[in-house]
Nucleic acid binder design. Structure first.
Length: 284
DNA sequence: ATGGTTGAGAATCAA
């Protein structure tokens, strides 16, 4: 089974790119973040035409929004923290934003998560991110067991280590790499998660996000903030992993994030993310 | 070789 996570920065704006990528990578399950749609505007039929069932948890106002597309079944969907769809969003309560959806696909429990962006250190948004992450970690521990197969994929807005950042000192005023954020992620990992991509790749400089501005992608100024976290029973079955930087290129305009992919049990369709070429260009 | 964006939604705000 191939599972991917992708912050698409608007599902509506990205549909053309998504259809291209589904044909290229052929994931069984695709975890989506930043759909920026209300539930009634989600493209259920368009996914159905391509063999995928879509579950969507969004909100009004063009922000946030998470979804799961699956062609291996989509059961026991829960949105937010164990709520049925449609899960309400209170505009006055940031803790209710549409950031979490879970389902059982092909026998595995999968979760799509969009962790808040802390923006600037010591801002209310930064504290809100830490508060949200603490609640998220508690939800994981309260409702799951690390001995069970579980996959959480999403935009964590945290780069786990310095080798996941082009310049650990220079980016975003320290957010995404600050000790408090990394400690929060480490606490979640300590509960019982393994970094799925790192099971198969130890190289530094493997990023999943590059700022749209200043030609950041071509300069190699990125961060690995999109993660697929797996419990030990899944980790034992991961046979392949990749970040598809080809999806960050060209037309139609890409998301600023690239999809992260793991294959569980058996490899899926091979594709070349061309990291070697990127490394050579960076050294030149 | 290139090079200071993109998306949502109606002015900026968020990332």
């Amino acid at each position: 089974m191939r599972i991917a996570t992708w912050n698409v920065n608007s599902l509506s704006a990205r549909l053309g790119k998504i259809w291209w990528w589904l044909d290229r990578a052929r994931p069984d399950v695709l975890l989506l973040q930043e759909t920026k749609l209300a539930d009634d505007a989600a493209p259920y039929e368009a996914f159905e035409e391509r063999g995928y069932t879509l579950a969507h948890h969004g909100q009004q106002g063009g922000r946030n929004g998470v979804a799961i597309a699956s062609k291996v079944g989509l059961e026991a969907v829960s949105a937010h923290f164990n709520q049925p769809l449609p899960a309400p969003v209170d505009p006055d309560d940031p803790m209710t934003e549409a950031r979490l959806i879970a389902a059982t696909c092909g026998g595995n429990r999968v979760v799509s998560v969009y962790v808040p962006n802390g923006r600037v250190l010591d801002s209310t948004h930064y504290q809100r991110k830490l508060d949200w992450f603490e609640r998220f970690t508690a939800w994981v521990a309260d409702h799951h067991d690390p001995r069970e197969p579980l996959i959480i994929g999403g935009d964590f807005n945290i780069a786990p280590a310095d080798e996941d950042v082009w310049d650990a000192q220079a980016n975003h005023g320290g957010t995404h790499v600050s000790p408090r954020e990394r400690d929060a992620l480490a606490a979640l990992m300590a509960w019982g998660f393994i970094d799925g991509y790192r099971l198969k790749h130890s190289e530094p400089g493997r990023y999943s996000w590059w700022d749209y501005r200043a030609g950041a992608f071509h300069k190699g100024w990125g961060m690995r903030i999109d993660l697929l976290l797996v419990t030990r029973p899944i980790a034992n079955r991961v046979v392949w992993a990749e970040i598809d930087r080809e999806a960050r290129k060209g037309k139609p305009i890409p998301s600023d994030h690239a999809p992260v992919v793991i294959d569980v049990d058996e490899p899926g369709a091979p594709f070349d993310a061309r990291w070697a070429r990127a490394d050579a260009k960076r050294r030149a």
